[in-house]
Design a protein around this nucleic acid. Structure first.
Lengths: 244, 244
DNA sequence: TCAAAGCAAGTGTGATCACAAATCAAAAAA
DNA sequence: TTTTTTGATTTGTGATCACACTTGCTTTGA
């Protein structure tokens, strides 16, 4: 009966090894497409083909078609009656609709998080704030991708603290849907002399540190409203010019 | 140049024919599984196999696996590390989580709908109320499925009026997730001498008729809270008995 | 010159097969 | 009797093929 010894030995080994995971090809394709979508690598109204993506990702069509199907059900992509799939086009109604939903749900999530975040979590997002400043000090132009990634990490680090396994996937779905839209705005921001984006994040952190749920919610809504409002104006003026 | 004549002839034909549609097998499988899930035909923690479902639905595995993938991404099903898929088990946290999310989002949807529903729409849901009474007067026992369906139609008829293409899919996802849970409660209700379910719906209709968004929201929350609260008590007492 | 028909390339969908991993049951060892 | 091992069956995953539909272009006819 050396079962205990064997068990102990296995545990020792397990402690040294890092899990290799068993991610399927489909999962990798799905993650990659998600990343591309949130990052705004695809343009609104762009049509995607299964074989095209399969070639680009160097796999067969099978994992791609399943990943596309999943993205369609969460409204990150759109199935046309022709059976082809495209990233949803931007419309004024859709912008307002997305902003309202995001304010509602992400606002609730941050309000919940405000009462649950400990000093440990606050420190984490404060560190991200510092990283942000650091990056902007260097003034790299092409760090727009990195900036977007950092922004995403900042928000989801907070949302993860809300303790709701139901809300978080919904928020992810909303980011997926608004990704292609807001990327347009982000680019425009970057060109038009960036307003102090970090300012909004700072007030979010301040509210969370005080455990002030209402203030956190308002600061968050102000933060996410900005690119949507910008995009809205841009679309409206474009429509006005179109009419002339 | 008899183009106009031909055109007119085609229109005449078109008026007589009903569109045949071009629904794929995958779509049918998906709809069928959705129906089963919302209707509570699957039990929580039940494991589903691709080939098993394919046999039951009399198709090949291909449409089933894609439908399952879609249901997993909207959290209606759960992918185990073993790669097998099951309907998510019920836990106390999950019940509270689902109720909170549903109150938040469906509450917002009905508040929006309250300002947008015309007399036409009000009449529609009032008619459903009547249908409900009629059904209960007959006192059929096995009409529990029909009752659930009617309940679903009632709610979504309202939600459709909220004018948000983003909120509605989220609500559908939430119903999908809570379907297997609340079915347990519904059955128990039906046995334990049904409380006046219709009463809650009547107060919803009354609030909507007055365009009172806040009252509508509160009435709705009261309505959907009921089965969740019931299920919560049941689970807690079961856990208490388990401890002894 | 222009519109309709016809053809060819491309695309999504479903079926089937091969393979690896998981599961379960019976047999062997302790 | 209990535990381990072994082997057979089941299951998910990915690849490939066949088919039907769409799309875009060319050709034909008025």
């Amino acid at each position: 009966m050396q079962k205990a010894a064997i068990e102990r030995n296995n545990e020792t080994i397990a402690a040294q090894l890092t899990p290799v995971g068993r991610e399927t090809v489909q999962d990798r394709v799905y993650s990659e497409l998600r990343r591309a979508l949130i990052g705004g690598l695809f343009e609104p109204s762009q049509v995607l083909t299964i074989r095209g993506l399969a070639d680009a990702l160097v796999t067969s069509t099978m994992p791609v078609r399943e990943a596309l199907g999943r993205l369609i059900t969460e409204k990150a992509l759109e199935a046309l009656p022709n059976r082809s799939v495209r990233v949803p086009p931007i419309t004024l109604e859709r912008i307002d609709d997305l902003l309202r939903a995001r304010s509602l749900i992400e606002g609730e999530a941050i309000a919940l998080a405000a009462t649950r975040m400990g000093p440990r979590q606050i420190a984490t997002i404060e560190a991200m704030l510092g990283e942000w400043d650091e990056m902007r000090a260097l003034k790299h132009k092409k760090d727009i991708d990195r900036e977007a990634t950092l922004n995403q990490s900042f928000h989801f680090e907070i949302y993860r603290c809300c303790g709701s396994a139901v809300l978080i996937p919904m928020i992810e779905s909303l980011w997926l849907q608004s990704g292609p839209c807001i990327r347009v705005a982000i680019y425009a921001f970057s060109e038009a002399g960036e307003v102090d984006t970090a300012h909004y994040h700072r007030s979010i952190v301040a509210a969370l540190a005080k455990q002030d749920a209402q203030a956190a919610r308002e600061a968050l809504v102000a933060d996410i409203s900005r690119p949507f409002a910008f995009l809205r104006d841009k679309l409206q003026s474009a429509a006005a010019k179109d009419r002339t």
